[in-house]
């Protein structure tokens, strides 16, 4: 394992901003993994840290396949993590909306440029991502439809779903989009949540990534990585049925991401925040599985609480 600083920048008042990378093996630039880019992506950081630990052990045991290099960047934004702010604290910009970056531009454009320079020449790229709305997901691989997306390779993760969506103009500055344009096979992994490290989801995602590394020939096939291996369902995000809050109030959730539901199954209730009575009951519109579930206790009117994948 080689530990190095990929990008650094002096701050006016804080310690130096550093993006650290961990390299394993030598040879062809095969896989880069980027953990947290936002300050609340703790699970993403945790997963990368566990991968660093495991790859170090595997390298010490000689179980990495020769002539390949793997780069792991647990966090590209330690400054925001230490402040518990999602975005770059000074100007609320999002590093993940700054790609491919610009090394003579604004601060977060420079960070993105420094990061992209370090990761752009790899054959495969994995980003541990998060969603802009608070919620729980079925673990899945997400990719933007650029014409370069590689669904067959995405299936090698063995995750339950591969979710593809058409990029909006706003999305052309995402890492996933730019990685693809620069001919890296890019995958965003949604492990479930942002802030929790305990539980089966993190372990499962770690093993899923190790599994993927085995299948693309980066680590020894004899390594046992326990995780379910699904024949992934490919879905277009536009196929998901959105179940929106008919009214606002306290949201009492009865079903969560991953639950199978029948048409008419109660999904949750909206309660009057002062009087406790039920204002609205929310039912499944179709037979299917809950792909996304809002995970905050307050609900705004007309805002998606669930997204259902219809059987």
């Amino acid at each position: 394992m080689k530990k190095e600083i990929l990008f650094s920048m002096e701050s006016p008042y804080r310690d130096t901003f550093r993006i650290r990378g961990y390299r394993f093996g030598e040879g062809e630039k095969s896989l880069a993994i980027v953990g947290s880019m936002r300050g609340d992506e703790i699970q993403q950081l945790y997963i990368c840290s566990q991968l660093v630990k495991q790859l170090k052990e595997l390298e010490d045991k000689g179980m990495l396949i020769p002539d390949h290099e793997i780069l792991i960047i647990p966090s590209a934004n330690p400054f925001s993590m230490n402040l518990e702010k999602r975005f770059w604290a000074m100007d609320s910009t999002d590093i993940n909306r700054m790609f491919p970056g610009y090394n003579l531009g604004e601060t977060t454009q420079r960070i993105a440029a420094g990061l992209f320079e370090a990761i752009k020449d790899y054959s495969y790229g994995i980003q541990m991502a998060s969603y802009y709305m608070p919620g729980n997901f079925i673990p899945h691989v997400r990719m933007l439809e650029t014409g370069y997306e590689d669904i067959d390779t995405a299936k090698l993760f063995g995750m339950p779903y591969i979710c593809r969506r058409k990029p909006l103009p706003f999305d052309t500055t995402l890492l996933n989009y730019n990685w693809q344009i620069w001919e890296t096979k890019a995958f965003s992994i949604y492990g479930g949540q942002n802030n929790e490290v305990e539980g089966k989801e993190s372990t499962s995602t770690i093993n899923t990534i190790l599994h993927f590394m085995q299948r693309i020939g980066l680590i020894d096939k004899s390594i046992r990585a326990h995780c379910a291996d699904y024949n992934s369902v490919l879905l277009d995000e536009s196929e998901l049925i959105s179940v929106n809050a008919p009214t606002a109030g306290i949201f009492y959730k009865k079903k969560d991401a991953g639950d199978e539901v029948k048409k008419g199954t109660p999904l949750g209730q909206i309660l009057d925040p002062y009087e406790g009575v039920v204002k609205s009951k929310i039912f499944a519109p179709e037979d299917g599985v809950v792909f996304f579930a809002h995970n905050k206790s307050l609900a705004l009117q007309n805002t998606p609480l669930f997204k259902i994948h219809k059987f």
């Binding site: 306290i250 002062y274 307050l298 009117q301």
Partner: peptide
């Protein structure tokens, strides 16, 4: 005009 959770409209 959209309802916010607690006694307010956006």
């Amino acid at each position: 005009s959209t309802a916010l959770p607690i006694d307010e409209r956006f």
